[in-house]
Design a protein around this nucleic acid. Sequence first.
RNA 1: AGUCCCGUAGCUCAGCUGGUUAGAGCGCUACACUGAUAAUGUAGAGGUCCCCAGUUCAAGUCUGGGCGGGACUACCA
Length: 1142
Amino acid sequence: MSNKFREYKNFDLSQINKDVLKFWENDDTFHKSMSTREGKPTFVFYEGPPSANGQPGIHHVISRSLKDLICRYKTMTGFQVKRKAGWDTHGLPVELGVEKTLGITKEDIGKKITVEEYNAACRREVMKYTDLWEDLTHKMGYWVNMDDPYITYDNRYIETLWNLLKELFDKGMLYKGYTIQPFSPAAGTGLSSHELNQPGTYRDVKDTTCVGQFKVVRNEISEKFFGNEDLYFLAWTTTPWTLPSNTALAVGPNIQYVQVRTYNPYTGTPVSVMVAKDLYRKFFPEKNEALDFDSYEAGAKNIPFEAVAEYKGTDLEGIQYEQLIPWMKPDGDAFRVILGDYVTTEDGTGIVHIAPTFGADDDRVAKVAGIAPMLLLDKEGKQQPMVDKQGRLFPIEDLDAAWVAANVDVDLYNEFSGRYVKNAYDADLTEKDATLDVDISVMLKKENKAFRVEKHVHNYPHCWRTDKPILYYPLDSWFIKTTAVKDRLIELNKTINWKPASTGTGRFGNWLENLVDWNLSRSRYWGTPLPIWRTEDGTEQKCIGSVEELMAEIKKAIEAGFMDKNPYDEFIVGEYSKENYEKIDLHRPYVDDIYLVSESGHKMTRETDLIDVWFDSGAMPFAQMHYPFENKENFGEVYPADFIAEGVDQTRGWFFTLHAISTMINDSVAFKNIISNGLVLDAKGNKMSKRLGNAVDPFETIEKYGSDPLRWYMITNSQPWDNLKFDVNGVEEVRRKFFGTLYNTYSFFSLYANIDRFTYSEADVAMEKRPEIDRWVLSLLNSLVKEVNVALEAYEPTRAGRAINDFVTENLSNWYVRLCRKRFWGGEYDEDKISAYQTLYTCLSTIAKLSAPIAPFFMDQLYRDLNSITNKDFEGSVHLANYPTVDATLIDEKLEERMTIAQKVCSMVLSLRRKEKLKVRQPLQKIMVPILDNDFEAQFEAVKDIILTEVNVKEVEYITANSGVIKKKIKPNFKTLGPKYGKIMKGIAGAVNKLSQDDINLFETNGSFQLLVQEQQVDLTLEDVEIMSEDIPGWLVANEGALTVALDITITESLREEGIAREFINRIQNIRKESDFDVTDKVVITIQRHDNLNSALENFADYISKQTLASELSLVDEIANDSGQEVEIEADVVTKIDVKRV
RNA sequence: AGUCCCGUAGCUCAGCUGGUUAGAGCGCUACACUGAUAAUGUAGAGGUCCCCAGUUCAAGUCUGGGCGGGACUACCA
């Protein structure tokens, strides 16, 4: 094997990507990265399962890069990081995909196609794009263990879910309740939100609306609001049929309300009403303000009014009112004013009528305030809303007689019992018939309970199948009582390290604060079935927690005669193999065919609901291990997770369900650290979508650039939690700027190392023997190592990547390598040269390790290219190596500081040369630097040589502060003076800036100075100001911050000749290069005489020869036309050079 | 509508606990350099730090209110 460093012809990251993938495959590096860490502390990572029924996009690359880099980093720092891949396989998107593929709708399931066939299609559909996903995972270098992924439709996975559900059931945390959902009485079915989003469902309709007048109960709370008249709240509704179900009124906490004295327009009764200030002009036009109160007659068109008081919403909270339509009584607290954060003053009265059974918001705020809904008891003993499933006010005869006797005012209700709430639901009625809304409104008018009744056009959703209006209606659902553990959820959340913190305290924290019970039910087919069986009357129920338990219950059911045979007969209890679990299917329709027997011997059927797919994924810490059936003892090794990362859109999804299930089951967090990343937008900041055609194909990008620049770009361009405006040009820039520079640096190293046969076989050159610049770059390198470690420990990869980027492009390449080039080429293979090689090698190797988590491909290549030759700390792959740790003894802040001075001075001198049009090749005699303190002189002296070489100047002259030639500048130090003097700060600044040179000198000698500013004495010390040199009159001077440099631009004859010599060297080098000579070839040089050049050539012949590896340099009178090359040394000074290889 | 994120040069982003010339890279223009060369250096142009108030001696930075972009949740009398 060659012991030369590999040299590249061209730089192709895409090719490197492929080469390294092949290497990892052959070497089995991923598995090694886990097996070599056997016995080490574990770092637990959870993979949020993607759904494989959609294609992977570029946005998946960013969250997976984040996941991957943390896991690789932790591996390198010595942890064993197991990470199991997973697939999310259930849910609506899969079903919709299948419906589209098969050309059917939900209604066809069970009719045109059996549930069995349908679910089989789902099972096929869901894994449609697994190949693509695995390909992306592979190509982008996302290391996750795909040997044995968890799959949510797997029976073992479902069995764990059942087990968890049973645990919740046993704890009393699983209950059946209702939620308000869109419901179509005409179709007799609930509608999903996506059905409601079908085009054409929202239509403008004209309905009778009613402003109800709710009479306030006069008591201690309300007394202060009362005058002579009765007091009422006004609340508007577009659905008067819900008024009988009213149980509360909501006001906006920050809305202003006015109390107005007036007359009811329909009855002429004097009343006092409460309405939002922003809206009261709608009811009380300005023109009526002047009307006389006493001369008002009932029925007159213009009604006098008078605003008497103003209140804030919060002032009204708790006021009680009389039930508007007292047909029946709710069971519990009701009829008071509550606060609703969603109340607006856009329309209506700014006071919202609350009917918890017919509005989702209503239900929510009522629950929070402890207000009871209006529920009836039907003949079956079930609680019902006031409207039945056909859309009728519940017929009295359908209600429980005893309940009716106790709660219903039958005389009042009889007139309305059985009426349809919308005429559209009644086949016998037409648009012309009076609606329930109208009849109720008329009734209220008569009873002095309506303030305004009018027709109103509004937007209302309709059933997409029947075209009839939908109702928001309470439908049965199973819930998890998450509110019972709300405090604990909040408490545990505080222990989680969120990146960014605001998502944890804000978005997630607020979500927990406003937690409602988790609605678990889904009326679909492809998902985890709810394992609850019930008797017909609902009095007995069983929750099944395992297949074993189900088998036992089936056996009982067979004995009781409810089942003929056990469909899961072949299943072997206690045998956890894949094969065994493939013998059964816990999905619908199979579980639906299972009937069980209750304790009292009744037949039980399964609740047909599926569970929310988010329960599937949130339970993955348990279910991926088939806990507790397997892995019960070692569960603690993989729980809780140290780290997860997903898009911020998962906050209320996966993040919540993980947290909630873990808290409920184990009273523990599910994850300790979390990065929630933002979205990937297109270059213009628009959301990417396939439909708009602005989506970026990750495969194309990786193919073109390799995944390293893509990953590096995504990580370093913006903080992960900010949205990323994805621009391919940025990827290209990263490729060129960062990877290109690093590649160039390596190429430079390998080129010369191979020439010198450097293989790091020598012992390390002692630090104190290394030149300043080596110690400097190593100091910076260690500062970098420290910073990168800190950043990654804090889960802030952006900071880490940016720091590495700066070091490589600025310090290593543009400064270290540029200044050290001459040390590598030519000359002896001495200690200085070895030191240079070792230093550069260390930098490159360390950078490879530091960057490996972010750019795993190129860095592995680089690491192996370097270490396979030297065998220094060679672990076969960078991903098996140990992450660099800081050697604090190598960090020298003074050294870093003075090199910064050197860099600045060089840049200043170069800038001066440029202004004077003095080429850098022209040597100059000296620069002058003002020295204001001893420390600065020492610092400068240490980097003097570097500066002089870099700017091609022969010497430096220090000018001391008191030499009198320096013009000084003084600036106030706001940080020290501000707190001391406050208000007169501006005056002080003005006075300080005006100080003369003599004042400054006096200040410096005395160490203090007094000023009188705005009649106040100000004592300044040197701490309070910054004194710096500004100018050296008579010289060419540059200034930057506190630094000042003067350049002597006199060119003596000797300097001129040296300049000419360097011009020649440059031309000769060019010729060598054009002639394709090898860097080490010796040459013979012949130059044609020229009067302007001769003496320079004679005086600097040795210098020229040495620099160009010439064994002979001779001057001739003329070089024949067919040989040699014409060169221009200065303007109009032309001669010929002939360079021949020996 | 609520909650959260973002708004600084043409573009992508820094700017620590408030401190006085607001920075970098890319792009643009000009010049230089040339044994890292499909590199590199120097300089220049380019900013009402989204707007309005407030706190402060001092605000890109803190507070309040808007506006714009995005996400999630919800959906209305």
